[in-house]
Design a protein around this nucleic acid. Structure first.
Lengths: 249, 249
DNA sequence: CGGACGCTTTGATCGAGATCATTGGCATTC
DNA sequence: GAATGCCAATGATCTCGATCAAAGCGTCCG
């Protein structure tokens, strides 16, 4: 079964409450097992991890948590996409990333959230109360190592974004963005050529440090040149070779 | 004694080899104790940490390690400044940060270095062989937590840089850069108003995503307006209020 | 000494993307 | 079904920093 189907099925069951009754099996059967922090948790710890988690649904445009608020929970995204952003002193908004299934949200050792997170579509998450999560971590040193790895990955991703945003060429920025976003999605589904989210152009703009007009013009140009196609389910990458050329040239 | 004096004295003794003979005392008396990862190491672990460390000197313009090379050692900077950078696919160079006394260089859980590091002036470091350092860490879960905190700090600093570089106004970029660099230096010395390094303008340019010409013109303007003064020891911040205004307006 | 090199400085011109302005579609709400 | 708001699309103009060019300056070294 393809991951996306599995997600759908799991979400159905989630809504029916199946998993709530069988908590131990919850994590073991999770779709994002193997792509996230949870994937680094050995099987013998699964039951305990499951018992702490609570499924959570978040509607489009709802906020999961705000920058600066006290860190009360840690989350793992199981389905959907969120935008992560910081408000800057001058009123600008910097989108620091997009969270997709498998991503860990919230850093248990920090007292306050580093960024805000809100849903771009319907989002399903596993929620872990911070205190219990931390206890769980501290009991098992190898899990601290797993968290360290995840944090380091995020550091590297942020450095990648830095390289992206420091580009002066809007076309290249856009091409690199599409490719790197695809790269992240491929973690779940290797064959992907449609990016399954409609990210508002304003969010892409705030991610890339461009204006909405420039983002729009670039997407229009790519569409005109048949490099991408924008559908109501997301963006389809039609010509990966050209996209790579634009990204690197 | 002011930190800078202590550094000087320690460096003198280092050169004479004093500390090599008394390894256990090395870390306990270290100037960057309390400002770095080492500061989170409890006293009872100090002796062992000391016994693993090896002092190291690096001349101006020398490279400590290259991006992509195998991670063989972890370093703590005790004196001097290094530039950390990545070479990008298109040949550009992205400076991802400047390491100052107290900073930890090299991530023990990664097999390869994420960036290159070279000295901007004479640099003194403590070197820890990676394998031993990792063993040391794994024996003490609380030290993993310390490393996690340091890594998270670096993540936040990188996000700050992201916000900085996404600014479109060169003047504001420069002002924010000077202030944030000062902020980092203050970790060691609260009273600082002279940034004690002569960072080549080309490095500032590659840090901020500007050209050397623009960097130069901004520095010239700030100097003309008596906001800063450039001496042969570094940059003196003459008018912090104006600098803050420029950074935020 | 001379000259080559690394780094800084300054001027002139150009162009990509910001900014400003307007329109249109589509969904939500009363 | 009119009103409101959100988002996308596109044209006209402007601006700031990139780019191109050249010169200055200290220092290292044969």
């Amino acid at each position: 079964m393809a991951p996306s189907q599995r997600v759908e099925q799991m979400n159905k069951e989630l809504r029916k409450g199946h998993f709530l009754a069988e908590k131990d099996r919850f994590c073991a059967y999770c779709v994002v097992r193997g792509t996230s922090f949870c994937g680094m948790v050995p099987n013998e710890d699964m039951a305990q991890l499951s018992s702490q988690s609570r499924p959570l649904t978040l509607d489009r445009r709802r906020t999961l948590f705000h920058q600066g608020d006290e860190t009360q929970s840690i989350y793992v995204v199981t389905s959907g996409t969120l935008r992560l952003y910081q408000m800057l002193a001058d009123g600008r908004r910097q989108v620091v990333g997009f969270a997709i299934p498998g991503d860990l949200l919230g850093f248990p050792l920090a007292d306050h959230n580093d960024y805000s997170a809100d849903a771009l579509d319907s989002v399903y998450l596993c929620q872990f109360p911070r205190q219990e999560f931390m206890q769980f971590l501290n009991q098992r040193a190898h899990l601290l190592g797993a968290l360290l790895t995840v944090t380091h990955d995020e550091l590297n991703r942020t450095r990648e974004q830095l390289a992206l945003i420091s580009q002066k060429n809007a076309e290249r920025k856009m091409a690199q963005f599409l490719l790197s976003f695809r790269g992240r999605q491929m973690r779940m589904d290797e064959e992907i050529s449609v990016l399954p989210v409609r990210i508002p152009q304003a969010d892409i703009a705030d991610f890339l440090g461009l204006t909405i007009e420039t983002v729009n013009r670039m997407l229009a140009r790519f569409t005109r040149e048949k490099i991408i196609a924008i559908t109501d389910t997301g963006v389809e990458l039609l010509n990966l070779i050209r996209l790579h050329m634009l990204a690197e040239a």
